[in-house]
Simulated scan of single mutants.
Amino acid sequence: MTTCSVRWRSSGGRGEFEYVPADSLEDRDINVLFEPLSLTIPAEVRAIKAQGKPRLRKFDKNNRKKFHLPQLVMAVARLPEPAREDTAHAVAFPLQNKSFVMDAMDFDIIEDDGITATLAPLRVSIRNSDFQIELQDRFKAIAVDLASIPSIAAKHPALAAAVEAHGVEIAKAVNSVEIRKAADRINAIQAEIFGMTNAGSAVTLEDAAAKPETDLEEEIVGKEGRLLTRIHAYKERDRVFAARAKKYYRDKNGGKLTCEACGLDPVALYGPDGERCIEAHHKVPIEELQPDSITRVDEMAMVCASCHRIIHSKKPCLTVDEVRKAS
C-alpha cells in the first residue's frame, strides 16, 4: 500500500504543511478514513502545486471553523492541537494545546481516483523530539471508550458524557472546530481524575488506576506520574510479553542474551539458568508513555536485574545509555 506524509515546514516565520512525495496527491481533494471508528470525514483541503512546490490548502482558507488536515486528525484522535509556528524549539510532556509542533503525519493512501484521495492516518511525530504516536492504536482505544460509555459512567458520569459528545461530533463526519472543543473537554476531565496525560482511553486509565500500586511509585509526586509509572511497571513485569521480548532479542543476537547496559553474559557467568537475571525494560520514557498504544518488543531493552534497579533508582528513570556510560 502506498504511503505519504504531511510535513511541517517553516515559511516566512509561519508554519505550513506540505506533502511528500511531491507528486503523489497533486490536484486531489482529501478524505480521511478513521477505520477503527468506521468513519470517513472529507477534510475540505486540496493538494496543489504553488510556485513549483507541493502545498496543502483548505477550501476556505479564512474559515477558522474548519481545520487543516493535521489539526482535524489530532482532534479526532483526542490529542492536543499542534501549533503552526515553532517558537519554543523545545517540547515538554505531556503535550498540551499549541505547546508543540507536529513534524510529520504519515498516511496510507487507501483510494485515489485521480480526483479524490482517501487517506488513513498512521502516526504523528513531534518536532524537536523522537516522539511518535501510533494513531491507529489511538483510534482503536477511542472506539473501546465509545463502546464502554455505560461502564465509564458508573464511576465518572461527566467523563462518559464528554466521551459520548465527542463521538456525536465525529459521527457527523464534518470538519468542524466542535470536534476540538469536545476533545478538549474529555482531556480536561481526564486530567482532573487521573492527572495530566496524553492517554487516549478512559478505559485504559481506569484499568490502570484499579491495579495495585507498585514499588516504583513510592517516590513519585502527582497522579499522572504515579499512574504512568504503574502502567510502565506492569508492562515490564508481564511475563508473557517479557518472554516474547527475550525471544526476539535472543534470535536477533545469535541465540545469546546479554545486558545492554553493562554487557553481562549471564549464561557464561552462571550457567544455563543465568538468563533468569535478564529482565525486560521499557525504553520509552515514562512521561512519553502512551498507555493505549500496543507495546512492541523492539521498544524493550534487555538488562540484568542489577542494572534494571539502577535504571529505576532515579526519577525520571535513567536511560540504558546513561547506565552503560557509568558502568
Results as ranks from 00 to 15, higher is better:
Asn62Val: 02
Phe34Lys: 02
Asn63Ile: 01
Val20Asn: 04
Thr87Arg: 10
Ala88Val: 03
Lys140Glu: 15
Ala92Pro: 00
Ala120His: 08
Phe100Trp: 10
Ile133Thr: 08
Lys58Arg: 15
Val32Glu: 06
Asp113Trp: 00
Val20Lys: 06
Lys61Val: 12
Met74Ile: 00
Lys140Ile: 08
Thr87Ala: 11
Asp60Gln: 13
Gln96Cys: 08
Lys65Leu: 10
Lys98Thr: 08
Arg28Leu: 07
Phe93Gly: 06
Asp29Glu: 15
Glu35Pro: 04
Ala75Thr: 02
Thr116Ile: 14
Pro121Ser: 05
Leu135Trp: 00
Pro21Val: 09
Asp29Lys: 14
Gln132Gly: 01
Ile48Thr: 14
Leu69Val: 02
Glu134Ala: 14
Ile126Lys: 09
Arg28Ser: 11
Val124Thr: 14
Ser125Arg: 12
Leu79Thr: 00
Phe93Ile: 05
Gln136Leu: 14
Ala104Asp: 05
Phe100Val: 04
Glu26Lys: 12
Tyr19Ala: 10
Val76Met: 05
Arg123Phe: 09
Ile142Gly: 06
Asn31Leu: 07
Ala22Leu: 09
Leu39Tyr: 07
Lys53Phe: 14
Leu33Lys: 11
Glu35Cys: 02
His89Ile: 01
Ser38Asn: 15
Ala47His: 11
Leu95Pro: 00
Lys65Ser: 07
Leu72Pro: 01
Leu56Ile: 15
Tyr19Glu: 04
Arg57His: 05
Lys53Asp: 07
Asp108His: 06
Phe107Pro: 05
Phe139Gly: 03
Met105Ala: 07
Ile115Leu: 13
Gln71Gly: 10
Phe100Gly: 07
Val32Lys: 01
Phe67Cys: 04
Thr118Gln: 07
Pro54His: 00
Ser125Gln: 10
Ala47Val: 08
Asp130Thr: 11
Ile110Cys: 08
Tyr19Arg: 11
Pro121Tyr: 06
Arg57Glu: 11
Ile126Met: 13
Arg123Val: 02
Arg57Lys: 09
Pro54Glu: 00
Arg55Phe: 04
Lys140Ser: 15
Arg138Phe: 12
Asn63Phe: 06
Pro70Glu: 12
Ala104Gln: 13
Ile115Gln: 14
Asp130His: 09
Glu111Thr: 02
Asp108Phe: 13
Ala75Tyr: 02
Leu72Met: 12
Ala83Gly: 15
Phe139Gln: 07
Ala77Gln: 04
Leu39Glu: 10
Ile126Asn: 13
Leu72Gln: 01
Asp106Trp: 03
Asp108Ala: 04
Asn97Val: 01
Ala117Gly: 07
Asp106Lys: 12
Asn128His: 15
Pro36Asn: 03
Ile109Glu: 08
Ile41Phe: 07
Ala104Glu: 14
Thr40Asp: 10
Lys140Met: 13
Leu56Pro: 00
Arg123Ile: 00
Asp29Cys: 06
Asp23Glu: 15
Ala120Glu: 14
Pro94Asn: 06
Asp103Leu: 03
Met102Gly: 03
Phe131Gly: 04
Ser24Thr: 13
Phe107Arg: 02
Lys58Gly: 07
Asp137Tyr: 04
Thr87Glu: 12
Lys66Asn: 08
